[in-house]
Every structure is written in structure tokens, then in C-alpha cells.
Amino acid sequence: MIKVKNLTKYYGSRLAVDNISFNVAKGEIVGFLGPNAAGKTTTMRILTGFMMPTRGDVWVAGYDMLSHSLEARQHIGYFAEAVPLYTDMTVRSYLDFLARLRGLDKNRIKTRIGDVVGICHLEEYIDVLIGKLSKGFRQRVGVAQAIIHEPEVLILDEPTVGIDPIQVAMTRQLIKELGKEHTVLLSTHILPEVSMTCGRVIIIHEGRIAAEDSIENLASMIGGAKRIRLEVAGPSQQVAERLRQIKGVQRVSYQDSDYTVECAAGQDPRGQIMEAIVRSGWSLLSLESIEMSLEDIFLKLTTEEETNR
């Protein structure tokens, strides 16, 4: 449904997206994850036809975005990061206007306005000027316009920013449901959001793809890289030094008597750690192994990129 090949975008001389390629299959919900200025919005703006790439090819819904943008745009629903709305229109006239531009006929517009207003819980506000709505409700109007023409592909740029937790949960639930019938690319920097809604994640950092995989695979790709948290009674510096000597231990950090040990891929040196501490005459107060969260993966991927340079 979405195919991106060697996509590069410069703003003047500033490189925003650097030769990225990825695919999103029909019916997938893919998270598009990255820190600020990673190039998420830029990529999405190219996918939706708002901007042309500097280099590279993009296909959406089977159409080449460069040569058949108009046809492709017919099949795309887009929630833009800035939540663009005409504040001098009512919710109804706004939805009507955009549905018309997307080629829906009169009767269908009527039923679809009813549908999306129901889905997004906007019934009471349908004849209210958008300029008078609160931020959260504006957000809903933005979602409503994105789905009104039942597009095959949904591109959502940070749809849960700035709304209250109940609405965030609602929006995520909605995205999940939409994902049953639509293909969804969801950008965010909220990590739990991705693990909650998406089957797969593409992590982008400084315009390049840092990782791309299912959430479970991503965790194991980091090498099942385990972390172990310890509490040890003993001289901190010496304990840390001793821990670093253990085979399979990559990094040790500590604060007072709490130590975090990062292990190399596929290693589980818990036995050796216990033994070493006891042998040195210190006492092990606690030891637990922690799975890497998406957060950790994200940090690890994005910071490693930096140290590689």
C-alpha cells in the first residue's frame, strides 16, 4: 500500500530525509517513530503529496506519487501535525467541504458526516464553529476529516498530542479499529503508543531509518540485550570495577548501592555476577533482570547512531 524507495528530501541545503526506504503492506498498522526533527512529518508530507521529494520514489495505494499524485490522493486520509482547520466554518460545513473535494456525492456525504461524527463523538458540536472548539475536539474534527472518504491509506501525524488521557485512549482504540480496514502509518514519539497500537515499527532518526521490525523482533534484535539491576552492599567503585571484569558484561553504571549492568547480546551472566560479589565478601541485596522497553531500544538505537559518527 505504501512503498518508499531511496527517498531524500532537502530543504534548501538542509537534509531532512536521507535516502530512506520502507514498505507498508495492506492492513498493517505501522508506527513511525523518531525524536523531534527526525524527518517524520517531512516523510508524511511527501507520502500525502503535499511536497515533492528531492530524490526517490513513492507509491501510495498503487499510484506513483510523482506522476499520479492526484489519483493517489483520492485514497489517502491525512491527519496533519498542525491540525489544519478552517476556524470560521462549522464542523458540518468543514466536513462537507472536504468530502466534496474528495469526490463524494451528496447522499454519501450526508451519511458519512453522520458516521464520522458518531465515530469521533462530535454529535453535539456538529453545528458549532470550529474556532470555538477546544483543542481536543479540534483534534477529533481532524480525525473525522481524515476518515470521511473511507480512504485505503491513513497517514496520521501525531494524532494524540495535546489531548487528555481519556481521549488519548479513545484515539488509540479508534486507530486500532481503523487498522482493521485501512492501512495506517502512525507517527509519534510516544513509545507506549506504538506498542499498544502498531504491529510493526519504523524508527527514524536524523532522516535515516535506525531500525525497522516488529516490536518483539526489535527487542531481540538489540540482542535480547538484557539489563540487570543489582543492589550490593560494598564500596561502589570496586564493586563496579569487579562487575566490569565479568565476561558478558558490557557496561556498568551505578548510583550509591544500585547498579545497572548491561549485558552483551545473548549473554546472561547472572550466575557469575552473584558468585563474584559473594566471593569478594560483599553482600548482594537484590538482583533482577529487566527486559528492554521500547524506550530503551529507541534510546539505544538513536544514541548509538550518534556515537558511530
Binding site: 496533519a80 489544519p84 473535494l101
Partner: peptide, 14 residues
């Protein structure tokens, strides 16, 4: 200014 140009330019409209 308001960013609504994004709606127009991503709609299937010439």
C-alpha cells in the same frame, strides 16, 4: 499561515 494549505494540497484537487 494557518497551515490549511495542507488540506488543499493533499486533497485530490488540481
Amino acid at each position: 499561515k494557518l497551515g490549511t494549505i495542507e488540506l488543499l494540497l493533499t486533497a485530490p484537487v488540481r
